[in-house]
């Protein structure tokens, strides 16, 4: 059964003659435990699609169903709770909180839901160990390399055991070798934890690391 189903999703901006179509009748589904790469050039609507699945944007039309529940009709507050509890997001620019150490950045997730316990701390340290940056746990983001920051961002997205991972251009700031390592690592975790992952990328080599590839051009699936 598909965990994520996107049906006939369109998104337009503006009105009248100034209308811009970002997405047009996009339809796809993703199975649990698989990784889908959304491949397309800049301006193709990849990030808009990711934002809609994250509940950050409302589609102009169409449906998004996750685990049988339509999520495109939720209020902002419901969408925020849904992201906090069910979604893990990895931003292209990482968006690590600059004044928190690596482990504290991971602990931000349970803090959003209430408070971070000792168990959360142990889990966060374990995740950093898994990503090979355990010894950098107490370092601030500015003390980490680009690759290390990316791994912290992925570990943070995994902190709340999400059902869906949304990953935006994970290799944009990395060289090819490190980018390939990060995508491979991401794939292992997605499959190992039975999650679903949508990875936006413009790099064909990175997309090859996914189970399926969805090509997006000018807002349409091709």
């Amino acid at each position: 059964m598909s965990l994520l189903e996107v049906s006939d999703v369109s998104k337009t901006y503006g009105s009248g003659r100034g209308v811009v179509t970002a997405l047009e009748d996009v339809t796809f589904s993703v199975e649990t435990g698989s990784m889908l790469a959304i491949l397309g050039p800049s301006g193709s609507g990849k990030t808009t699609l990711l934002s809609i699945v994250a509940g950050l944007l409302q589609p102009t039309s169409g449906r998004i169903v996750i685990d049988g529940q339509p999520i495109h009709l939720r209020s902002q507050r419901e969408a925020a709770l849904y992201r906090r509890d069910k979604i893990g997001i990895v931003f292209q620019d990482y968006h690590l909180i600059p004044y928190l150490s690596a482990v504290e950045n991971l602990l931000l997730m349970p803090r959003l839901a209430g408070r971070a316990t000792r168990a959360h701390r142990e889990k966060a340290l374990g995740l950093l160990e898994e990503f090979g940056i355990g010894e950098r746990a107490k370092h601030a983001p500015w003390e980490l390399s680009g690759g290390e920051r990316q791994r912290v961002a992925i570990a943070r997205a995994l902190m709340n055991d999400p059902e869906i991972m949304l990953v935006d251009e994970p290799t944009a700031n990395l060289d090819t070798e490190r980018g390939t390592q990060v995508v491979a690592m991401l794939g292992e975790h997605v499959r190992g934890r039975d999650m679903t992952c949508l990875m936006v990328t413009h790099d064909v080599r990175m997309a090859e690391g996914a189970d399926r590839v969805l090509r997006l051009v000018d807002g349409r699936v091709v």
């Binding site: 950050l56 925020a80 709770l81 992201r83 906090r84 979604i87 997001i89 968006h95 931000l108 959003l112």
Partner: peptide
């Protein structure tokens, strides 16, 4: 930018 990211992660 930072607040936008925290809100995107699910902060109210």
């Amino acid at each position: 930018g930072q607040i936008a990211a925290i809100k995107a992660l699910g902060a109210s």
